Amino acid sequence: MKLTLKREAFCNYYIETGNASEAYRRAFCCQKMSEKTVWEKASVLLTKDKVRARVEELQNEQKNKSDITKEKILSELSNIAFSSISEMHNTWIERKDFDKLSAEQKSTIKSISTKVLKKNIGTNDDPEIVDVEYVKIELHDKLKAIERICKMLGYDAPVKQEITGKDGKDLIPKIEVEIIDKREDVSDEDSND
């Protein structure tokens, strides 16, 4: 399958960024176009059979090169979706406590802040002041993880519903229309003239 250089670049940038508009902008150097125009052109380009096939081919190459499976992705998303901040503490914790978290718990962390404070580990009579590193964690968005899981598993598929009125009758009554032919009848006698 042969693509133009720009279309090939578009496909590669699309795989890299996951954003059709950004891929179009990079491949076609269209900095002066409006966002709407870029989006429209990128959307149309993604509907082209050869482009769509090349994107799928590149995606499959990436899948084959990596050991990332749907199961691994679901496992990570599940860690996030079903994690609890209460298991990890909702405020600053000492580094030693943070180090005790499991790999699954750590995989749910979006960001970490640290600070060092002085702490007396001695007594009032015999103080021993040491530096203690504290960690504050923020978890990834649970709802986004749940939404992504639902999409992957097809739980978000639209449900077809038939909407009816009272007693199962149509909401909009069907109207029968009689079509009347307004053309004049032409008799055989008139057609001989």
Rank of each mutant, 00 (worst) to 15 (best):
K110N: 12
T17W: 08
E189F: 02
N19G: 06
E71L: 07
L153G: 01
F82A: 04
H140F: 13
P158E: 12
T114R: 06
E56G: 06
G165M: 12
I93T: 05
P158K: 11
S102G: 03
S113D: 12
L139A: 03
D125K: 09
R26E: 12
E8C: 02
T37Y: 11
K169S: 13
D167S: 14
R54S: 08
K63H: 07
E57V: 01
K65L: 11
E162C: 10
S84T: 08
R52S: 13
E94V: 11
I146G: 01
N120L: 00
I73A: 13
D185I: 14
N90M: 12
G168N: 15
E35S: 14
F10S: 08
N60E: 13
E71A: 12
E35C: 09
L101Q: 02
A20G: 06
E133H: 00
V177W: 07
C11N: 06
Y134S: 00
S107E: 03
M1P: 01
K100M: 09
T108F: 07
N124W: 01
K6E: 13
K144D: 05
Y134T: 00
N64R: 07
S43N: 15
D185S: 13
L77I: 07
K169P: 02
P173R: 13
L139C: 03
D97W: 08
K115Y: 00
I180S: 11
E128L: 04
K70R: 12
I179Q: 12
C150I: 04
E104P: 00
D126Q: 04
D181T: 10
F98N: 03
I85R: 09
L77C: 07
L5G: 06
D167E: 13
W92D: 03
L143D: 10
T108K: 05
E94P: 02
N192T: 09
E87Q: 11
E147H: 05
T123R: 02
K110C: 07
T47M: 10
Y14E: 04
A20Y: 10
S113C: 02
D97G: 01
Q105G: 03
K50Y: 09
S66H: 02
Q59S: 06
A23E: 09
K110A: 11
I80R: 05
G165N: 11
A23V: 08
H89E: 14
G154V: 04
Y14P: 02
T17L: 11
I80Y: 09
R148D: 04
A103V: 06
I93S: 07
T91Q: 09
